[in-house]
Design a protein around this nucleic acid. Structure first.
Lengths: 332, 332
DNA sequence: TTGTAAGCGTTATCAA
DNA sequence: TTGATAACGCTTACAA
């Protein structure tokens, strides 16, 4: 079933049928005739042929570091809603936290070029990343990190961490920090910086043995906390770079019978659904991930429409959510 | 940069370059010449043109009910690993639990037909579903539900619920059940049946006011539990169709100061990552979701390769995970 | 083993 | 407002 047959059945030319589907410029009678044939046959134009001819696939590539993650899920949900609405379908590429795979997908999108745009939910930027990105023949929006020269939507990691740490430090004098690798500028470097500045504001000296690094998992948080306890360091607050890490830490503290928040306060960042389910409910920062996704998708839509190279960075706001794992309120 | 230019630069015909990329049948010298040109130019064949010509897009459509779900994430992770390995990219369609949207995507895939196969992470089947599915011009694999006549990979919801309920019922005589809509055969009907049979095995009468229905959310579990308490019914076990529901129930019980598992045992199904983080750690059933995804993807790969219409159903095994929200062990 | 040429199903240009 | 016709970039008989 192709356009030629439809044209014959409707007694018009292929071009007219094509116009019917696209610009317009078809007389009422012909329009009606074509409509009738289409209804009867259920014909829909071939996506592939259209793609070949126009160079537009209606596909957007979305590269994510992890599918099984609350933050990523929410961003993708936002992206989906906007892009589907606009008639795009999204090609999902999951890298499983492998930066090399990330580059591979970038190259794949660049070479095969079967997407009209790319959204990269980013973690780190290596030289390989930059090369692959600059070779991209279609617009790109970076989500959750900043990449100068490209459109990006990101969280205020510095401010968020500074504020939530501040909350804990109001009633703690000996905090410890469990973060992630500095290579991840947003979750690693920026949050760490926020923590350090919060400490400074409270006149707290920070020593290296109170700054741990782990991965994004619950287990990572657990073992980091265990390590801290093993070192015999006294601490009355545990500031974690992510909620997952905080969950692990909470579990570890419970097993070692340290009361939260009485003996140790705990805070995280991310406000996963479960943060209000665990005991004690976690004080954390709520990021507007879904909205970030929506914003990024809209940005991409704009880029794909205009092709002019103006870029900008959007920093999203956040809400500190005070719950039961901190005692700031009680002491006021 | 197209095949014609490469051909000229290498001093061969387009056909030879095409053969270079596909079947073979190219002499060593020409092969070398072409390879050199390709290395120099970085040329890669146009996906679109190839698609138009061959009718194969290298795309697989994956329809999911919810992106922000541990079980779905794990299934998608499994699917991704297999399909990417096989050179396919996946087109993700998120329906946000809207059965109508599900049908729309099915139709989209059927009409535009820009995918080589479809994996449907299913919830319910309406007449519209069946129609859209039978109109699909490409192979389909149904995941997490059974649809006779089509390939499917599903969980043993009946057995899982029967076993985990049995665990609770060893030390409880007055259980209540919080399930989901029967329209969802797997999570609704099958698990309910498993629960009822477990009760029967223990000689427990089940009355209607102890069978609640809610949605898949934490909040749903919370309010169902609240409702149960409001009715003034005594119960010493809460059997939940999903972990999420169980989390909500646990929160509610804690707020009403009912000790778990001493006064009320709680069980769920799904074994989300957090089930071992919350207090008390939840007794649940571990499904092999990722493996299911892998299995489904392999099945689809097989179907796409052979086009013969033989279908089969694969029921996945499960593991009952006994943790702290039940007291079966203590009483033995 | 290689080249020629005919499509795949559209859209865009141009003339009518 | 419409209809020929030439691309779009590739694969694949078929012939050489």
């Amino acid at each position: 079933m192709d356009i030629k047959q439809i044209a014959e059945m409707a007694g018009v030319s292929r071009a007219t049928v094509s116009r019917y589907f696209n610009n317009g410029y078809v007389s009422q009678e012909k329009r009606a005739a074509i409509a009738r044939v289409i209804k009867k046959t259920g014909y829909a134009p071939s996506r592939q042929a259209k793609t070949l001819r126009t160079g537009k696939s209606g596909l957007v590539g979305v590269i994510i570091p992890k599918i099984n993650s609350a933050s990523v899920s929410r961003m993708v949900a936002g992206i989906t809603s906007v892009l589907n609405e606009a008639g795009y379908q999204l090609l999902l590429a999951n890298t499983d936290n492998d930066a090399k795979v990330e580059v591979d997908f970038l190259k794949l999108f660049a070479e095969r070029s079967n997407v009209d745009g790319v959204i990269l939910v980013a973690t780190v930027f290596t030289r390989a990343h930059r090369e692959a990105i600059s070779a991209l023949p279609v617009p790109l929006v970076v989500l959750d990190q900043v990449l100068p020269g490209y459109c990006s939507v990101y969280q205020d990691d510095y401010g968020a961490m500074r504020d939530v740490a501040d909350l804990a430090l109001r009633t703690s004098a000996h905090p410890a920090y469990i973060g992630v690798l500095e290579e991840d500028v947003a979750a690693g470097s920026e949050r760490r910086r926020g923590y350090l500045d919060a400490c400074r504001a409270h006149g707290i000296e920070v020593s290296d043995d109170r700054l741990l690094v782990t991965d994004f998992s619950i287990d990572g948080g657990y073992s980091a906390c265990e390590q801290l306890l093993a070192r015999g360091l006294e601490f009355d607050a545990l500031v974690c770079a992510t909620d997952s890490i905080a969950y692990g830490a909470l579990t570890c503290l419970r097993e070692h019978e340290r009361a939260v928040p009485r003996e140790v306060q705990v805070v995280g960042i991310g406000d996963s659904e479960l943060s209000q389910v665990i005991t004690p409910r976690l004080t954390t920062v709520h990021y507007h991930y879904k909205t970030s996704g929506i914003e990024a998708a809209r940005m991409l839509l704009g880029l794909m429409a205009s092709t002019e190279g103006v870029w900008r960075e959007t920093k999203m706001g956040y809400d500190v959510v005070e719950r039961d794992s901190t005692s700031a309120c009680l002491s006021e």
